[in-house]
C-alpha cells in the first residue's frame, strides 16, 4: 500500500478571496505580521500497489484530469 498526498494550490496571480478573508480574520484575532494567506486543498490517497513509479505516474494523471484545474491551480505529490 502506498500512501500519497496531493496538494493543490492556486497559481500565483490568481485572486484568492477566501485566502484574503482568512488573512483578515487572523489579523482580527491579533496575529500581526501576516504577509499573505493562500488557501489550497489536500488529498490523501491510499493506493493498492507497491509500484511507486507507476503510482506517481497515475497520480499525475489524476491531478491533470480531475484533482486540479490547471487553468488556475498547481499541484504537488508527496509520499508518506
Amino acid at each position: 500500500m502506498i500512501k500519497a498526498r496531493v496538494t493543490v494550490t492556486l497559481k500565483n496571480g490568481v485572486l484568492d478571496p477566501q485566502g484574503k478573508a482568512i488573512e483578515g480574520a487572523l489579523g482580527a484575532l491579533g496575529f500581526d505580521g501576516i504577509g499573505q494567506v493562500r488557501q489550497g486543498k489536500v488529498f490523501d490517497l491510499q493506493i493498492e500497489s507497491a509500484d511507486k513509479a507507476k503510482a506517481e505516474e497515475d497520480l499525475k494523471a489524476m491531478c491533470e484530469k480531475l484533482l486540479a484545474n490547471t487553468v488556475i491551480e498547481n499541484y504537488s505529490i508527496s509520499f508518506a
Binding site: 490568481v14 485572486l15 478571496p17 477566501q18 478573508a21 484545474n69 488556475i72
Partner: peptide, 17 residues
C-alpha cells in the same frame, strides 16, 4: 463547460465571498 475544457478560463468564488 469551462471544467470540461470546452470554454476558456475558470470560474472562481465570488470576490465578495
Amino acid at each position: 463547460l469551462v471544467e470540461a475544457g470546452l470554454l476558456p478560463g475558470a470560474l472562481m468564488r465570488n470576490a465578495s465571498l
